[in-house]
Design a protein around this nucleic acid. Structure first.
Lengths: 116, 116
DNA sequence: GATACTTGTATCCTAAAGGATACTTAATTC
DNA sequence: GAATTAAGTATCCTTTAGGATACAAGTATC
């Protein structure tokens, strides 16, 4: 019985972690968030601020982030139609994840160097 | 100048995060760590505790984790040769990453439900 | 009515992660 | 010497992530 609870907890832990990875993982999602956060609002500005990203990928990722309530997309109806992307308040909570990931990554690099 | 520093910080932040993702990301690494942590020491035990994983993938992931100092691999020379995997002390620091990921994932699910 | 601008989409392709399944090696017991 | 057991490896295949490049829709200006 206690064993079953343990197993269930284990699975839920993993699932929650994988959910986060799905929403924030991959090569581009956090870079895009940071780019918008640092002032870029327009599609082409964001694209220009992130070396190597393509239109297709940026477009897909922006949709994914919008669906997950992390960014907002506002249409501005003058010529030519502009779109403004912005970070949502909720998106600021990703810092709780990004900061530990960053810290651990930096420390891990040191750790691997000691190894040699 | 200040702008250049900002850009450099941005890039290093992203790189550190991607390093962590490389070491701990993917479908299986954290599940494997948690499995060993919860008492499984042997290849077949670990394999049996994680539904869906295959020999090939488990083997690759164990090597990856060992190279990154997160688990140890001990050969025991009786019949038939046994191998014992164990979590390293260093591996315990992954909790600093796993816990926030888990917490955020659980909260995010709630958030998405509110949306509807 | 040709041109330019912005935000994308369409099409096709490559690379990486992961999966299925059979097999190997080495010692030991029967 | 056939069978068993543990820890993988070998081979081949599928799926997913990401990349390259061209171009489309709508509107305003010239």
């Amino acid at each position: 019985m206690a064993q079953n609870n343990k197993k269930r907890d284990f699975k839920e832990k993993i699932k929650a972690i994988q959910d986060t990875m799905f929403v924030l993982g991959g090569k581009w999602k956090l870079p895009i968030i940071l780019s918008i956060y640092s002032g870029n609002k327009r599609f082409n500005d964001i694209a220009g601020s992130i070396p190597g990203i393509t239109n297709r990928v940026l477009s897909k990722e922006l949709k994914h982030l919008e669906q997950n309530l992390l960014i907002s997309r506002t249409v501005i109806n003058d010529y030519p139609v502009r779109i403004e992307y912005a970070i949502t308040d909720y998106c600021l909570t990703t810092e709780e994840v990004a900061a530990p990931l960053e810290k651990w990554g930096k420390n891990h690099r040191k750790k691997l160097q000691e190894k040699v």
